[in-house]
Design a protein around this nucleic acid. Structure first.
Length: 553
DNA sequence: CTGACTTGCGCC
DNA sequence: AAAGGGCGCAAGTCAG
């Protein structure tokens, strides 16, 4: 399949350099920037891979012109993966421009950098960078898996741009009803709503603190202590443990102020336009390879307000999430057949009970979370020996990752994404006897850092490989949705509108909902095959066809 | 006053 | 019910 590298030659001119598989240029043409959408639409009639510096700099304008692309290589993202992969000979990537590629940041519409007069991307040569990537990949011992990761990462960039373009259908009127019901009518900024005022009066009375401002952690802590409560912080979970008549009102107050501040009327004004919640998803935005988001706290939309996400008339949401993604990924990547057997039931934790590893589902869950996150204290720590005996490969894999991290080493995901190189003296330097204590951390502190590093690398391999599974799932789903057919642009057909680590929302015309469900399941099966080949591990989905996100669970 | 840091809490 | 990993965001706090 031919590739077409797109290069900005000036504000008004684009160069399209078409290459065959072996890299020889087939055709180079210059065209006015305004003609680009038409050119891309035409060239998409036969298979092609677009190569560009950064999807956030090219794709939004194409989507706005009604043009979808099938596949691309996003050099900003592939550069980031290659630069940190332990399977890449870094000398093959070295160039004067390496620092520029390292520093390249995505652009969002809220950035003044949307139409930057002086975009740092324009000082970089995508043709040369792409050639370095090809060379580094070809020379890599992990080229097959790494190649899959680069393709999946680039595909994720397309999905992210399309999701921002389409937006998540959001009913401001439903959201406002919900706010008014819980908080009372909207007040001016800085003023408490009726419900908050009522709770405030009650809190001040029961704690005998007539001027108390519960929004100030310091003031609140002192008030609690004056009331005879022994607490050292004001977290809700801490307060729940206390026995005092003022606590319920205080907890309610904290819950409602949180709603008001994070997802209240201001949030609606800022992030919801024309019936869509539009935020920015940033593929590869997290070190593990998970996505980050920008704007409106997209990845932490509380379940409380999800009822306001409502499909258009005649349309539905297909909401799908993977049950217990990370333990399944761990079973697959470690080829632990005993754990894969437990995963055969739709509830992996119950499967561990049936398999005789642990006595209860609760033990299975807490034990696995501890294994993947590094919990050593209490119940999860006590489960570890039994889990390690029963699932030696799975537990062995995370233990090895933890020990590597403690030694200051880099670990990697199944497809070859590397963890960041640790910085700081604590990682390697041995304890020097007699060193002045004010120049080095104490031994205790450095041990604490080492263990924290171990927990990070332990989690990195699982969370990161989980992110690779979901990338493959998204990429394949995106293509299946397009093939369901129909006419028109991305947002006129079944299309992805939201993605939350292990959950997707598809907005679809109602009559295609059943086919979308099939597509979502088919893509999950394909993701499992891509990552784990014939190894028998499956990824059951919870799928719901609903009119509102709030009805999905 | 601004900017950096901390606290607390939402999501997975 | 959290713990243990990864985030974003808003408000409070504090130093300059």
């Amino acid at each position: 399949m031919n590739r077409v590298v797109l290069v900005r030659r000036s504000e008004a001119t684009v160069e399209a350099r078409e290459c065959s598989d072996d890299g020889t240029a087939v055709r180079v043409r210059r065209l006015p920037a305004a003609d680009l959408p038409g050119f891309v639409r035409e060239r998409e009639r036969s298979p092609v891979r677009w190569v560009w510096d950064d999807t956030t700099r090219w794709y939004p304008a194409l989507l706005a012109a009604g043009v979808r692309v099938e596949r691309c290589t996003d050099l900003r993202l592939t550069h980031a993966v290659l630069r940190r992969s332990p399977f890449v000979d870094q000398s093959l990537l070295a160039d004067d421009e390496t620092g520029g590629w390292d520093a390249l940041a995505p652009v969002t519409a809220t950035d003044p950098a949307l139409f930057p007069l002086d975009d740092p991307a324009d000082r970089l040569d995508p043709v040369a960078e792409h050639e370095r990537h090809q060379a580094a990949l070809a020379a890599s011992a992990g080229r097959t898996r790494l190649g899959l990761l680069l393709a999946a990462e680039s595909s994720g960039a397309l999905v992210a741009a399309e999701m921002t373009h389409a937006g998540l259908p959001w009913r401001a009127d439903v959201h406002e009803c919900l706010l008014t019901e819980l908080l009372g009518p909207r007040q001016k900024p800085g003023q408490r709503t009726a419900t908050l005022e009522r709770l405030l009066t009650e809190i001040r009375a029961t704690f005998r603190a007539p001027a108390l401002n519960p929004d100030s952690p310091g003031e609140l802590l002192r008030a609690l202590q004056t009331a005879g409560l022994t607490v050292s912080d004001t977290r809700s979970w801490t307060l729940e443990q206390l026995d005092h008549p003022g606590i319920p009102a205080l907890l309610e107050y904290k819950k409602l102020t949180r709603l008001l501040q994070a997802n209240g009327w201001t949030w609606l004004d800022t992030w919801v336009r024309d019936g869509r919640f539009r935020s920015y998803f940033l593929p590869g935005g997290v070190v593990t390879g998970r996505w980050a988001s920008n704007g409106g706290g997209a990845l932490s939309v509380p379940t409380q307000v999800r009822p306001a996400a409502v499909a258009d008339d005649g349309w539905r949401f297909v909401v799908a999430d993977v049950a217990q993604l990370e333990p399944r990924v761990l079973a697959g990547m470690s080829a632990d057949t005993a754990m894969a057997e437990a995963a055969r039931s739709s509830d992996l934790y119950q499967g561990m009970v049936v398999g005789g590893a642990v006595a209860t589902r609760a033990e299975a869950k807490v034990g696995m979370l501890g294994a993947m996150y590094g919990g050593t204290r209490g119940e999860s720590g006590r489960m570890m020996p039994r889990l390690a005996r029963r699932y030696p490969r799975a537990i062995g894999l995370v233990e090895a990752a933890a020990r590597a991290g403690e030694r200051g080493e880099v670990v990697h995901t199944l497809l070859g994404r590397g963890s960041p190189t640790p910085t700081g003296a604590w990682s390697e330097r041995p304890v020097e006897l007699g060193e002045p204590p004010d120049e080095v951390d104490s031994r205790e502190e450095r041990d604490r850092h080492r263990r924290a590093r171990g927990r990070f690398t332990r989690n990195f391999v699982v969370q990161g490989t989980g992110a690779e599974w979901t990338l493959c799932w998204l990429a394949d789903l995106r293509n299946r949705l397009w093939r369901l057919g129909g006419t028109g642009t991305v947002s006129q057909r079944p299309h992805l509108v939201f993605f939350l680590h292990d959950e997707v929302l598809v907005h679809t015309p109602e009559h295609l909902a059943d086919e979308v469900v099939e597509a979502v399941r088919g893509a999950a099966a394909e993701a499992g095959r891509l990552l784990f080949g014939a190894f028998p591990i499956d990824f059951p989905l919870d799928v719901a066809v609903v009119g509102s996100w709030g009805d999905a669970d």
